[in-house]
């Protein structure tokens, strides 16, 4: 009996101490974690819709998008958060469209788990830059091994067609969904 009591007391005490320590630690680090999240969202929004000074977050169902405004308060575009399956895991990205919905203003990959050296090239500036100034209608298409000839085309990464296609599909699907909301 004594033994059982001792075990219970010891485990309870350890649990209480560890719980309190973690509570303090959590309170201390939570503001920093939130700050980091805001910072990374800021960076992405400012990158995909250049000229943004402030933005307003909206979410409808599971679609999250940010209306972007310039210094004078005029709406200059929207940054849309997109996610979907890539070759090896989820790809999360943000894409910017201008105010009259004719052009994409930029794209930023936020998270990806594609093959390093191949599919992971979607996170490189060279691939992302193709989306700047791309026509938003009709839906984006990709071409392989040659330079894009139409305003809605991008060039897929050599050896990583699946990853390139995944990015294009994710953007097309999410933008479609977002347009229907409008």
């Amino acid at each position: 009996m004594n033994k059982i009591l001792k075990m219970i007391v010891v485990l309870t005490v350890i649990g209480i101490i560890s719980g309190s320590v973690l509570a303090i630690m959590y309170q201390w680090s939570l503001p920093k974690i939130i700050e980091n999240q805001i910072k990374s969202t800021n960076e992405a929004v400012f990158k995909v819709v250049p000229g943004t000074v402030k933005y307003k977050e909206n979410s409808v169902d599971d679609l999250v998008y940010f209306d972007c405004f310039d210094g004078t308060g005029a709406r200059i575009g929207t940054a849309i958060l997109c996610s979907g399956n890539g070759y090896q895991g989820q790809i999360k990205l943000m894409v910017g469209v201008n105010a009259d919905l004719t052009q994409f203003t930029g794209m930023a990959i936020l998270e990806q788990l594609e093959t390093p050296g191949l599919g992971a090239k979607i996170a490189e500036a060279k691939f992302q830059a193709q989306f700047k100034g791309l026509a938003s209608r009709p839906p984006i298409e990709y071409v392989k091994g040659k330079s894009p000839s139409r305003p809605n085309e991008i060039e897929a990464i050599t050896g990583a067609t699946i990853s390139s296609k995944a990015v294009v599909d994710i953007i097309n699907k999410t933008v479609e969904q977002w347009l229907r909301l409008k």
């Binding site: 560890s18 630690m25 201390w28 980091n36």
Partner: peptide, 23 residues
Amino acid sequence: ASYIVVIATFVTMADLFLKGNFP
């Protein structure tokens, strides 16, 4: 069980610290 609780406490601390300071 006791060791695991002690270890888990420090792991969570390290995790929170990294998330807060080195995202």
